[in-house]
Amino acid sequence: MTTNAYKMKQVETTKSVFTIFTGLCKGCGLCIEKCPTKTLHWSDTLGVYGTPSVEPKENDNCTACGMCALVCPDCAIVIERKK
């Protein structure tokens, strides 16, 4: 059940659809540090506190492992693996 429509942005990588809910992202950077392929970076799109949110940049590198979503304390990332 969704009561809030959070601002969001989607980035398609080779293996995943990466959704960042900028309306939830506080720009802590915990996810960037945990991305095993170092493909997550600061984004020009701002998060809920007006600080940079995050997005994958080297699109071929994202393995859709979901680590970034797992370690986000604010549930701001959703990773969908492409078929």
Partner: peptide, 25 residues
């Protein structure tokens, strides 16, 4: 796509009140 929050979380109070990167979350 909707955020993948636990069902028991109360969504209308999110983003929650903890600091960025706080372990409580």
């Amino acid at each position: 796509v909707v955020p993948n929050m636990p069902k028991s979380w109360r969504e209308e109070t999110k983003p929650h009140k903890f600091c960025p990167g706080c372990g409580h979350g």
